[in-house]
């Protein structure tokens, strides 16, 4: 059984409808360590040693956050800047993350069709996530396609969000139990359809 670390980042959880519910579900999955970054570091003073210890302990790292300006909220960037240090995560002797799996679980306001060469966002989600992909790659991690929830603004009620919550739970369980087809997941546009029931 693999150990899964969910790093959750939402600067305004009281305004969140989807991520809040996904986070609540993630907390309940056995074998998952859940970290609410904005709750832990309201002053952005990240405890680098502690975070490195946790990253080293886990096999799968999931960054769960809303998709802000085609990227992650500021604290996720701060986290990557400060925690993935030279000589630890990359560079000379930096092998702490080697062989681990990393993926993102994001919610985007726009529908699927606006992402891509024909859409108004011009790039696909995976193209926009390239910096994260490359970060994982430089650290020797295997980067998987993201879990994406589109049209987040239209999903108003609990009933509409529920299927997404269930799928996210299944994703975490599959990552834990090693039942996700990793080859396909690495090359897919998104991981959503690859999750076993």
């Amino acid at each position: 059984m693999a150990s899964v670390l969910v790093l959750y980042a939402h600067p305004a959880p009281h305004k969140s409808r989807i991520n809040r519910r996904l986070a609540a579900a993630a907390r309940e999955v056995e074998g998952v360590t859940f970290r609410d970054l904005y709750e832990l570091y309201p002053d952005f003073l990240i405890d680098v040693e502690e975070e490195q210890r946790l990253l080293a302990e886990h096999d799968v790292i999931v960054l769960q956050h809303p998709f802000y300006w085609y990227s992650a909220p500021a604290l996720v960037k701060e986290y990557l800047d400060l925690v993935l240090t030279y000589g630890w995560a990359y560079g000379e002797g930096g092998t702490a993350l080697k062989g681990k799996i990393m993926l993102q679980a994001i919610s985007a306001g726009g529908p699927e069709e606006v992402y891509g060469p024909q859409g108004r966002n011009r790039f696909t989600i995976r193209q926009l996530l390239a910096p994260f992909d490359q970060t994982a790659h430089l650290c020797g991690m295997r980067y998987l396609a993201p879990h994406v929830i589109h049209g987040a603004n239209q999903l108003a009620d609990a009933a509409g969000i529920q299927p997404h919550v269930q799928r996210f739970t299944r994703l975490l369980t599959a990552l834990r139990d090693g039942t996700l087809p990793l080859e396909q997941a690495a090359s897919a546009e998104k991981v959503n359809e690859l999750i076993p029931n």
Partner: peptide
């Protein structure tokens, strides 16, 4: 150590 990641040279 805490701000090591911000060293621009690295």
């Amino acid at each position: 150590d805490a701000d090591k990641g911000w060293e621009i040279a690295r």
